[in-house]
Simulated scan of single mutants.
Amino acid sequence: MDLVAVERGQLIRQEALRLGFDDVGFAPAEEIGEEAGHFKRWLGRGYHAGMDYMARNVAKRTDPRKLVEGAKSVVVVLQNYMPPRNEKLESGLKLAKYAYGRDYHKVMKKRLKKLMSFIQSDVDTAAEGRFFVDSAPVLERSLAIRAGLGWRGKNTSLIHPRLGSFVFIGEIILNIELPTGKPVKDACGGCSRCIDACPTNALMSPYQLDANRCISYLTIENKGDIPESFKGRFDGWFFGCDICQDVCPRNWKARPHKDPDFSLRTEFRDMTREEWMTMDENIFDDIFKGSPIRRAGFSGIKRNLKFVTEDQSQPPC
């Protein structure tokens, strides 16, 4: 191993942790072979549903060097967002934990920008690159796996041995050599809790998620009506869904985050179901400023709230 690369990695890791990231690893900037095949088969089956953007720039998604000319390494950071066990909405409605607080894109990009500046000033003045947080055609989980930060769970989420799966992923693609992470063994074993718990059968088989049936897709990315065939299955989830992660034993022992940026907003926690249902667009714009919930839009949230309210009055099929 190149000692210079090792020293660079140590400096970057120390600074990343100081900035508030919960773990960091390094992957080579090269074509992602086996994962690329898995991704292309997923697309071929139409499991990406209406997310047409996933089928674009496939070459860039599977090779970081096509995003950053001269790229040699990828710094991959993880940010824990696991909330305290008792943190939930008083209304009984359910919101994906990643949307409890501030928009993670903004929080993490700010930290990655600082990390990039540190690399260029204190690690290698010749360093050049780009940083991303779910904002470019990058197979983030695949890079995290290659960086030794966990394995792909049967629910398709990245599972970190210590942090579990409630983690945000960010990366910096660089033109300098860094040490390569060691693979983490898949520890799902014979467990199938995530597959068994999915109320819409979106997990077709281990490691195979059909977004057409996924509550997260249907309540966020989906721009049309939610199919009537899913009535009685949402159990109050109106933006995203954490069921397959909540039942994962790896998350039962994970420690909650200590970052106020990701804590449940007081407005979200205290709103009554009636207030959720009757809010107008002005209230929506005010309450959800700086929140990832804005991705679904006002009409999308109203659609979801109407669906889950009717949904909870009907028995599951």
Score class of each variant (00 low, 15 high):
28 P>K: 10
233 R>V: 08
68 V>E: 15
217 Y>A: 04
272 T>Q: 04
267 E>M: 10
67 L>N: 06
270 D>F: 08
136 A>R: 15
95 L>Q: 05
228 E>A: 11
210 D>N: 13
168 F>S: 07
184 V>E: 02
122 D>R: 13
192 S>D: 12
248 C>P: 09
6 V>F: 08
9 G>W: 02
157 S>K: 11
66 K>V: 09
252 W>V: 08
16 A>M: 07
143 L>A: 11
58 V>M: 08
225 D>L: 11
227 P>R: 09
282 N>Y: 02
107 V>A: 11
21 F>L: 06
163 L>S: 03
284 F>V: 14
288 F>T: 06
34 E>M: 07
271 M>H: 04
244 C>Q: 01
288 F>Q: 07
225 D>M: 07
262 F>K: 04
258 K>C: 04
201 N>E: 15
131 F>N: 12
106 K>S: 14
296 A>M: 13
97 K>I: 04
277 M>F: 01
266 T>F: 06
115 L>M: 01
317 C>T: 02
308 V>M: 08
134 D>V: 00
223 K>V: 07
3 L>V: 00
141 R>Y: 01
63 D>Q: 00
164 G>N: 03
7 E>C: 00
49 A>N: 13
81 Y>I: 14
270 D>S: 06
108 M>F: 03
33 G>W: 09
140 E>G: 09
156 T>G: 02
10 Q>G: 04
209 L>S: 06
32 I>S: 05
182 K>H: 04
179 P>F: 00
14 Q>M: 09
117 S>Y: 09
87 E>G: 07
246 D>Q: 07
275 E>W: 02
289 K>A: 12
241 C>D: 03
271 M>N: 06
98 Y>H: 12
283 I>S: 07
82 M>L: 12
176 I>S: 00
57 N>P: 01
150 G>F: 10
63 D>L: 13
317 C>Q: 10
146 R>Y: 05
188 C>K: 03
236 G>R: 02
163 L>G: 05
25 G>V: 03
141 R>I: 09
259 D>L: 08
302 K>L: 12
27 A>R: 13
293 I>N: 04
152 R>M: 14
84 P>N: 01
223 K>H: 14
37 G>D: 11
24 V>M: 03
